[in-house]
Structures are given as structure tokens and as C-alpha cells.
Write a protein that binds this DNA or RNA. Structure first.
Lengths: 196, 196
DNA sequence: TACATATGTGAGCTTTCGCTCATATTTAAA
DNA sequence: TTTAAATATGAGCGAAAGCTCACATATGTA
């Protein structure tokens, strides 16, 4: 999380979570670039000085948010590696997409944060997710080479990014229909790739 | 294109194209937000004043570039509506993806420009492309309802956006392999949707 | 050559942003 | 109660961005 100073009192911890919530809200509304530090502080009911007390710069905020979201994905998907073998492809795809949709609705900042700048030390969430998916796929079909599994995972993940973009452009109703189409596409593709 | 003043001499037209080329280069390298007007002018060997002589603001540059790229897509795909019926699904998919790849390589600014802000008067290229794809699909299978065709086109287009993202992350070799996977996925999906 | 118009120039205005710092207040331990 | 550390504050600094404007030069026409 890389805070400038670790909160040492309960008050400090409350501030940090309040600030992160505010940051997520502002980023969700305006995007990363347009989100300003002053607006984040104001939204949290704090002063700019207070914000910089804990976060040394703007990037450190996105790092913290990304780390949090990454952990939540990991919690959802780490069981998948052991259970994927017993799932049908439909179930696997449904699970992947539904979980993504769920996290995106819980964290509207996730979408803009995927495009925000990332230091090389703090790799994007994407890489983590790709690993999980690749392992899930190999659990389902162990004869897949690592290279091929990584490729399938990349395509699968990028397709799920496509789902994300729907949130920019479509309302709930049409979005549901489109999500169904995405599931179908992935099922078609993975069935072809895993069952031959 | 909405220029502040239309170029009236050959000199002016040269300036405009030079400026647009420079803008595309800078945007390709740094992204839209980080691309500055001064850098664009400098890259074109012009002064800032000269830049503002023709382009009233930063957005007008992206509008001009987007319009240009939109026209090129249109040129490539407008014949598709009449010929799609006689193509196999493999051929259609190959055509769509290869054309996209080709334009992306010719115009490296296309990728960052897709995410750049767009006024409501100047709709993103995406909408144009979606229409073309939807018409192509209906040409291939006239029994498709407009709504369903639009949905398939959306999913197809978003998949092609996925291809675009590969350029951020992968080198030529792996990219080629991944593009093949994308084609396969679209073929699987469209075969399922168009032939049943 | 003379004149109007098109194009070119860059110092600098205005605004906004990320961020610092001197200082004030709250908290917890001694 | 005293005291040191933790937390809070916001005026303001420096940098960089978009953009203007008064003026200089180039070009076409008569």
C-alpha cells in the first residue's frame, strides 16, 4: 500500500479508509486523470494536508486501490484452480464473467483504474487475473501446454475486459443481453479449444 | 474538421497536414492527455501561434484525426455490405480483423484516440464501425433482426478492440499468435450464431 | 511597386494541478 | 498534568498546461 506514514491510531485508520473511498468515488466519476487531489480530500471531508499525510502522491492512491481490488479478485478465483476440473465449460465461463460483473458493480472505480498509469513495480491487476485463469484452464485440461493456456487466458481475459467496456456505453437492460452474448462466445471458443 | 480558419494557400494546407502528422505522432507516443499543444507545434516545426491559427483548441485536433481514420475505415468496409453474403464466415472475420490490424499499424495514434474525450456532436469511430459490421452481418444472414445484428456487431467490435489492446502489451511474434486466437473465437461464435 | 490578405511568431496571461510546510489540535502514555 | 507523538489544516509555491494577442513576415494580385 506504500503509505507515507502508517496510521497508528484508530483515527488514522478511519481517515485512510475514508480517503480511499472518496478517491474511488471521484475516480469513478471523472476518471483517473481528471480526478484531483483536492477534490478527493474535500470529498473525504479532510484537508489536502491530511491526504498527503498518508499518501505521498497521487499514484500511491491508485496503487492502494488496485491492491485492494486485486486481493478481492484473488479471493474469488483462487479456489477456481482446484475446482475447475469438475465444472462444465458453461459453468466456468459463467463464473468468470459473473464474478467480474459483480466486482465491477461493487467498485465502479475498477474500470477507470485499469487504464491508469502503473509503475513497473506494481503490475496491473490484469497479470494476476491472467495467471488465475490460465491455471483454471490447465486444471480443466492438463494436456494444455503452458504457452497455449496463457494464450487462451489472455483471450479470455481480454474478452472480459470487453464486458467492462459495456458499462461505459449501455444501460442495464441491453448490458445484460450483451453479457449473455459474451458468455456464449467464450463458451463456443473454449469448448472448441478444450474439447479437441 | 472544424478548423479555426480554413487554409487558403498551399502553404496553409501543408501546415495543416504537418500539424496533424505531428499530433498523431505525439499522441501515439504519450497518449492524449499527456500530449501537449506546445510539443505538437514543436514536432511540426511550427510555433504555438501557428497551431492555434488552424486549430481552435486541443479537441479539434483529435476530431480531425478521428474523422480521417473514420473515413479510412469507411473506405475499407463500405464494400463489405454488398459482398459479405458471398464470403464464408472465416473470410469475413479474417477481413474484419486484418483490416483493423492494418489501420492500427498505419496509424499508431488510433489506439489512444479511441479513449480520448469526444464531444457528443462528434460521435466516436466505434459507432460508425458498428453500423458497418451490423450491415455486413445482415447481408450474410438477412433473417437476423436489427437488434440482434447490432448486438452481434457490438460483441464483434469489442473483440476487435481486444485485438487493439494487444499492441500495448505484446511483441509482434506473440501478437500474431493471439490474433489467430481472436479470429478463431469470432469464427466459432459467428458460426454458431449465423448458422443456426 | 503597392497593398490586402494569409500565415507565422513567441512572450506571457490565466488557470489548475500536485504537493510542501509551518503551525495548530488531538490522542495516548508517563 | 505533562509531554511527545500522531494527526489536521490550508495558504501558497513551482511547474506546466491551454490559449491569446500584438506584431512580423510571406504571398498573391493589381
Amino acid at each position: 500500500m506504500k503509505l507515507r506514514r502508517l496510521p497508528q491510531q484508530e483515527r488514522g485508520e478511519r481517515r485512510v479508509t475514508t480517503l480511499l473511498d472518496a478517491a474511488a468515488a471521484v475516480i469513478a466519476e471523472t476518471g483517473y486523470d481528471a480526478a484531483t487531489m483536492s477534490e478527493i480530500a474535500a470529498r473525504a471531508g479532510a484537508s489536502i494536508g491530511s491526504l498527503y499525510q498518508f499518501f505521498p502522491n497521487k499514484q500511491s492512491i491508485t496503487q492502494a486501490l488496485r491492491a485492494q481490488y486485486g486481493r478481492e479478485f484473488q479471493e474469488l478465483w483462487s479456489p477456481l484452480e482446484s475446482t475447475a476440473a469438475s465444472l462444465t465449460i458453461e459453468q466456468l465461463v459463467s463464473r468468470l464473467i459473473d464474478d467480474t460483473v459483480q466486482l465491477m458493480e461493487r467498485h465502479p472505480a475498477l474500470l477507470p483504474l485499469m487504464d491508469a498509469p502503473c509503475s513497473t513495480r506494481n503490475p496491473p491487476i490484469r497479470k494476476l487475473l491472467r495467471q488465475h485463469i490460465a491455471r483454471g484452464l490447465r486444471a480443466k485440461k492438463p494436456s494444455l501446454s503452458e504457452v497455449v493456456a496463457a494464450r487462451l487466458a489472455t483471450v479470455t481475459l481480454q474478452t472480459m475486459r470487453g464486458v467492462r467496456e459495456l458499462y461505459r456505453e449501455f444501460e442495464t437492460r441491453e448490458r445484460r443481453a450483451l453479457i449473455q452474448e459474451y458468455k456464449l462466445m467464450l463458451v463456443c471458443y473454449l469448448t472448441y479449444q478444450l474439447e479437441t
